[in-house]
Design a protein around this nucleic acid. Sequence first.
DNA 1: ATAATAGTTGACTAAATGGTCTATTTGCTA
DNA 2: TAGCAAATAGACCATTTAGTCAACTATTAT
Lengths: 204, 204
Amino acid sequence: MGRVSNSKETLMSAVLELIWQGSYGATTIDQICDKAKVKKGSFYYFFDSKCDLAAAALEANWQARKPELDAIFSPTIPPLERLRLFCDHGYKKQAAIKCQCGCVAGCPLFALGSEICNQEEKLHTKIKEILSHYHTYIESAIRDAHAAGIIHAPDPASKARMLFAYSEGLMTQARIVNDAEVLREMAEGMMGILGAKNATVKAA
Amino acid sequence: MGRVSNSKETLMSAVLELIWQGSYGATTIDQICDKAKVKKGSFYYFFDSKCDLAAAALEANWQARKPELDAIFSPTIPPLERLRLFCDHGYKKQAAIKCQCGCVAGCPLFALGSEICNQEEKLHTKIKEILSHYHTYIESAIRDAHAAGIIHAPDPASKARMLFAYSEGLMTQARIVNDAEVLREMAEGMMGILGAKNATVKAA
DNA sequence: ATAATAGTTGACTAAATGGTCTATTTGCTA
DNA sequence: TAGCAAATAGACCATTTAGTCAACTATTAT
């Protein structure tokens, strides 16, 4: 019973967009409210603080994207193909964002995590939690590829850390130079790191 | 003639420390002044804004570190050894910072660049400029290694982009999880990416 | 010594910002 | 349709923040 509203969701979308485009620190509560077309009173009705909102927004965003990632990393897809899909998916998303709002966001979690570590404990914890999921996807693909004899990776965790660092590094690079094209070589780069024979290297 | 002062330098050191420990956005001019024990009037006597100060501080910091890097990447050192030195140097520095102030800073340029892109054009430009120097060091080492027949890297620029993304990704990761130990595998990881036979892999 | 110069000080302003509070509105349910 | 719960509005306050300014102080070259 009582009134219904989508302000909570609107606020979560707004804060994410503002952070992707600018930064957490430079985003004010007033800006968020303006963008979401929600008054401050409502903001504080739903959330305790910017940190609280951001953490909730990341969680919701993660929940929304999870099915997509589950599909990409489905065991029914050949392991290296999963990684390639993941990279292509990342490239396309960044390119789309660039078209839409003029800037490459990079990996929001990494950018945000790097910015607010040593501040905002709650947000920081949430970010590490979600990032670890990505790590898990990658590691699983590597393990399967090794088991299938496609690559030699007796220590999948270690290789996963490498791919993870590489992909996040490239993503951040893309954000800094504001150019999604640097992501085009991610799939090839991953295959190189895994020592995979460049099967089906996509044409430019 | 006139009075002498080191306030300019003190301010530059202060802003860097504050940014490494926290973030650019969360750092206020008052904080910087407090830390540097300089009054606001003096701040504005030397600098126009926080952005201005930060850009000057990065440039000064780069100039101070350049000799060190020139030594590490000296052509008199075997190319892959240069990269290994670079990694070890990075690890040691981060570990030292962690001991000193309780947090791993990661690559300040990458963290800051990722935070302030699409804002603070002047700072952004300076960061990209300095980052490109690092890239140049790495590429040169790879080219030399290829010429020496130690590795196969017909496209040194491409390999340099990979190593760069990997190392920066690891650095950022170290910052996020606040643990310098993840950097220990950087040298080994680089050698793996380059397809170098793990000559002289340092013992843990 | 002294004048010109380089640097310092701290009080001040205006604007931005985070956060609160109460009255009001809306819609669900019984 | 009455009544209750959920949500909204927006005025309001206290702080923090960036930035200014004019008076003051130390240094040094002549």
